[in-house]
Design a protein around this nucleic acid. Sequence first.
DNA 1: TTCTTATTGCAAATTTGTTGCAATAATATG
DNA 2: CATATTATTGCAACAAATTTGCAATAAGAA
Lengths: 138, 138
Amino acid sequence: MHNELETVFAKEGYRLTSPRRAVFDVLHGSESPLAIAVIIKACPDVDRVSIYRTLELFTRLGITEIIPFGWKQRYELTSPFKPHHHHLYCTNCGVLIDIHSQKLEQVVAAIAREQDFQPAAHKFEITGLCRHCQANIQ
Amino acid sequence: MHNELETVFAKEGYRLTSPRRAVFDVLHGSESPLAIAVIIKACPDVDRVSIYRTLELFTRLGITEIIPFGWKQRYELTSPFKPHHHHLYCTNCGVLIDIHSQKLEQVVAAIAREQDFQPAAHKFEITGLCRHCQANIQ
DNA sequence: TTCTTATTGCAAATTTGTTGCAATAATATG
DNA sequence: CATATTATTGCAACAAATTTGCAATAAGAA
């Protein structure tokens, strides 16, 4: 994992420092997107400021992306560090389900083509009730 | 417009106050999603705190939704106050293009069905370069 | 018109994000 | 391997955004 990171950084002329490794490792070890506050707590040896700066850099380099998540934003690794996917979010129990939809990707391409738009990235999310919560509530 | 609002509020037992009308009117008068700071400035007679509380309530009642917008979030009225749609966002000039895609809605339904998920809402956004900026930069 | 109580505005606290700069450490170079 | 260069860090201090408690106000019911 760090090899690919090194490659990206070397290519761009940035240094692969221990704060950056720490933030990357936390994200890489997580199943789901993380809020900044969580990343800060998970890296007790790294200053808050460096975490803000690191996430800004990662996002600018396309290593992470910002995921809308209720009121706050969260961060998640992108491809090739984590395969491209989207989320179903259960508003009752909070579970996140990863989805990989070829059809969705096709629709993105089709919409962009129709609008003469050059797509760089896209976000997608469905909120609602997971199978389990449908059965239990109401 | 206010009639429908009154209906929603009456049904839920909330009061339709002047701060709430003011925030609603600002959102209703806008073409695009608005940042909280903008809404605060647009309602000089309403306290900041009330605007936070109002947007929290609106979102909880499904009157508004949070739109990811670069680093910050913005707020926009939802159906029936504003027809359901999504955005293309040009990262160069900042323009927002509204899209209404039947295909996308079908994919949402299909994904939900496959996952046995009961969808309540969904977000979708493509970022990239608009026609104009493709021609001008690079 | 009066009563009840949800909602507001205010003040103050807290949390979140930003900036400038000297000290540190990652990489290139000899 | 030692040294030089300079990107990056941590710290302190600041600035902005968001939250909380509570008395005063006003919406809607009676």
